[in-house]
Design a protein around this nucleic acid. Structure first.
Lengths: 107, 107
DNA sequence: ACACAGTATCTTGCATAACAAGATACATAC
DNA sequence: GTATGTATCTTGTTATGCAAGATACTGTGT
């Protein structure tokens, strides 16, 4: 998979999953990996950024299967960001596709 | 516009425009800018990479409006790359959208 | 002659984000 | 006590886009 394509997009994916339910990091990797390859070395720094920017808050919860889990929950600001980023992503892919298709049609 | 989204995508855009017609760098900026912001500091290094990788060849042509233009033409390898990258881009956006829509539906 | 705008190419240094690899630690099973 | 699965986090590397500026040719206005 082209790593470059993911730049900026994984952030929307994380926000989008969190808009559905609170998750811990390891769980997010599992959920997103159903569609897109993502590694732990990517998710944890990303989650830290989202917290630093105020888009998520965290809380710890114990687990019977291993060490305690750090859950992430969207803030209002995070919900707004999720919405805006998603709109921007849609605009962007529409623009790209019109460029690609436009040139396909002309071949 | 989110700069990160463009990572890797501008390369397909350039290849796709070149699949339609030979272009010089300045012209590519103009064509792609109709849909996506792109600057000259991006296009020239990108074109050099594409040439180093054997996806394009170049030829000079004089202009009455300024300095000579360096035209870029797709090679067979470049045409193949354009096709493969486009397919990968389609697969990627489908995967992302299914993640985003999936969570929209669950809200 | 001189300055300026438009056309055209190219380079340097910076910012960002994803990843591989590894460190750490808890729980359970063998 | 060793290995496996769960879980978090850090370090160093890599790739790409951008702003800013350098260079140079052509035509226009003064």
């Amino acid at each position: 998979m082209n790593i470059q394509f993911k730049k900026g997009v994984l952030e929307i994916c994380v926000l989008s999953v969190l808009a559905h339910k609170d998750c811990y990091g390891y769980e997010l990797v599992y959920e997103i990996s159903k569609q897109i390859d993502i590694s732990e070395g990517t998710i944890y720094p990303l989650l830290r950024r989202l917290k630093d920017e105020g888009f998520v808050t965290t809380y710890l919860q114990e687990s019977v299967e291993g060490p305690p889990r750090k859950y992430y929950r969207l803030t209002d600001s995070g919900r707004k960001e999720e919405h805006e980023l998603k709109e921007e992503w849609m605009r962007f892919t529409t623009a790209v596709n019109s460029l690609l298709v436009g040139n396909d049609a002309a071949e």
